[in-house]
């Protein structure tokens, strides 16, 4: 009974982290049809930015604790804004209209470049900015000790997911975006400035990526290569949920999170296969993912 409860808690926490990582990826794919391999690097940039600044802030006792949290979020968003703008304005906008697969490779090249750029800026030594994580303390939920920071992540992830969904479904801008997702050419013909939408969405997606990194940074040790490790996870979640769907990413994250937690508790031997197993299974039954749309075949 205890472990079933633990599976639910652990699964939810892991799922909320997965959703944070995957949200930016699915937004960018949904609108721009770019499967962004560099998304993991955005995550790592956010983590590095947060860890280096927050670490400096707390180690030197610059100000109050709550301001440290704001600083963490702030620097992630600024880093995302800068990186997103540079990449979209400086490179991607010249590539629109190219083959979808070619776009994947472009982002693969970006990944290689960003990995080494991060190494040049931050070196290879781990960054350790544990204060935001440690300061929050822990709670006991029915005998299970859980970090409050992790519970906060669940909250943030819920708010973010809901916000994104409302934005897409309930605002004018969201409607326009959905029009672009549905049919780019028709949207363009109706007078939508698709290019501006692309810039907006790419920067938003990048900021979601850096935010996920910044939120994760206090709980881990920030090291080179951490971005590469999350990218396949994020892909799996997005593919399971259906590419480009926010609610799909949420359900995919929950599915992966819960199955993984169950594996860890009941069958640690299979932990390594769970994610790919779930992905293969879902694709075998629903080739377009849980919430993916079936595209009409054009002759």
């Amino acid at each position: 009974m205890m472990s079933l409860f633990a599976v639910l808690i652990d699964g939810t926490i892991y799922a909320s982290w997965l959703f944070l990582v995957a949200a930016g990826l699915t937004v960018i794919y949904g609108v721009m049809r770019i499967l962004n391999m560099a998304h993991g690097s955005f995550y790592a940039i956010g983590a590095y930015a947060a860890a280096s600044l927050v670490g400096w802030y707390f180690n030197n006792g610059v100000g109050p604790v709550w301001a440290g949290y704001l600083l963490m979020l702030g620097c992630a968003l600024v880093a995302g804004l800068i990186v997103g703008l540079i990449i979209e304005r400086g490179l991607l906008r010249f590539m629109y209209g190219r083959d979808e697969v070619l776009m994947v490779i472009i982002t693969y090249a970006l990944l290689l470049i960003l990995e080494d750029t991060m190494k040049m800026i931050w070196g290879v030594n781990p960054y350790f900015a544990y204060q935001p994580y440690a300061e929050m303390g822990r709670s006991a939920l029915a005998g299970l000790k859980v970090s409050n920071y992790d519970l906060m992540l669940v909250g943030i992830s819920l708010v973010l997911g809901l916000g994104l969904w409302l934005w897409l479904e309930r605002t004018h801008q969201g409607k326009v975006l959905r029009a672009v997702i549905h049919d780019r050419e028709v949207a363009m013909a109706m007078g939508v400035n698709v290019r501006r939408m692309f810039t907006l969405v790419f920067v938003l997606g990048t900021m979601l990526g850096t935010l996920a990194g910044a939120l994760t940074a206090p709980a881990i040790s920030v090291v080179p290569g951490m971005g590469v490790e999350v990218i396949v996870l994020a892909f799996a979640v997005v593919v399971i949920g259906g590419m480009g769907s926010i609610e799909g990413a949420a359900v995919g994250a929950l599915l992966v999170g819960l199955s993984r937690a169950a594996a860890v508790h009941y069958a640690p031997e299979f932990e390594l296969f769970v994610i790919y197993g779930v992905m293969a299974l879902v694709l075998a039954v629903r080739p377009q993912g849980l919430f993916g749309r079936v595209l009409a075949r054009k002759i």
Binding site: A236, A280, Q288
Partner: peptide
């Protein structure tokens, strides 16, 4: 052969990673 585009790519990746997992074990 039932899959195309990005789904083919991801499914092929999944199978390859499952073999990786088996070998690691």
């Amino acid at each position: 052969t039932r899959y195309r585009e990005i789904f083919f790519a991801m499914l092929s990746l999944a199978f390859s990673m499952i073999l990786y997992g088996v070998l690691v074990k």
